[in-house]
Design a protein around this nucleic acid. Sequence first.
DNA 1: AAAGTAAGTCAACATGGCTGACGTAAAATC
DNA 2: GATTTTACGTCAGCCATGTTGACTTACTTT
Lengths: 164, 164
Amino acid sequence: MADVKSGTNPLFLREEELRQCIELLFFAYRDFTAGPDEILREYNFGRAHHRVIHFVCRNQGITVSELLEILRITKQSLSRVLNALVERGFVEQRPGVTDRRQRLLYLTEEGKKLEQKISKIQRNQVAQAFMEAGGEAVAGYRKVLSGLINESDRERALKRILNK
Amino acid sequence: MADVKSGTNPLFLREEELRQCIELLFFAYRDFTAGPDEILREYNFGRAHHRVIHFVCRNQGITVSELLEILRITKQSLSRVLNALVERGFVEQRPGVTDRRQRLLYLTEEGKKLEQKISKIQRNQVAQAFMEAGGEAVAGYRKVLSGLINESDRERALKRILNK
DNA sequence: AAAGTAAGTCAACATGGCTGACGTAAAATC
DNA sequence: GATTTTACGTCAGCCATGTTGACTTACTTT
């Protein structure tokens, strides 16, 4: 009589472990976004603005369509957020050099300051977790999260993350 | 002339690595939620419904206030989603035994079926990533993500995750 | 010259957060 | 036993951020 719930059943162990790791991701993400949200509120910005600021910072001169592809939202959704950032002087648009239809995106000095302010909180949070966990754990974290990225997009995404 | 951008500057390396790991979390979460979202759409449910289904499944008989604390949303926000799930027969409410003010939450058979269907996708996705990354990496993943949980809530959250 | 592409706009709608005010039943306390 | 607190719920309205669909403009490619 094989007890499905027995600790000796590898399939059950596996499912339970997987569920725990899924939940872990939820809690980590929940608390990981809480800090930035607080600062953003002071500026009347939201998480959507943060994402734009982050990716424009990491990819100065990015095109609108590249940004859309990263964020996986519609251009109408992006435009609201992007226009607000441009109007309030956090993001700057410059026509592309080789293709003048493009409007390349850059953070202004103001934008860079805000990015620093927000990302510092997250970096401290991550640094703290890294210190507690140790270098080997960090390597594991990177490996697993990389594997969670959609396979068809993984290479491109990783290239972007590790860029330069 | 110390080059701040030099690869030999540990502070720069550190910041760059931290930023990469932050971005990794964004991409992983983005693609991690895409699968469930697709299924949920067929039921006219959203991510909010999924979260309720998930945590009620993992904590059968959970009280409304415990659920609110996990999700970190207002009861008004929860009620919309919860009422829909109850009305459509995915979640069941039973009065508490010792405290009859409570309405303990349970998944119905229907609810369990949907949960299985959704979580199977995520479990497969995570299992795949785990296989590619290896057991040591998984341990690292768990360590780091645990450390990302808000310190004041960490113990309680981890207890809930690892429960039973 | 025509077709395709990058980006933007307007309008309307859905989801899921939020606040504030108020209600009801049960439990806990004075 | 009366009062206060607690668990939960509702109504109403607002806001942020996602969606679709239709159309325009400027530029590039063919």
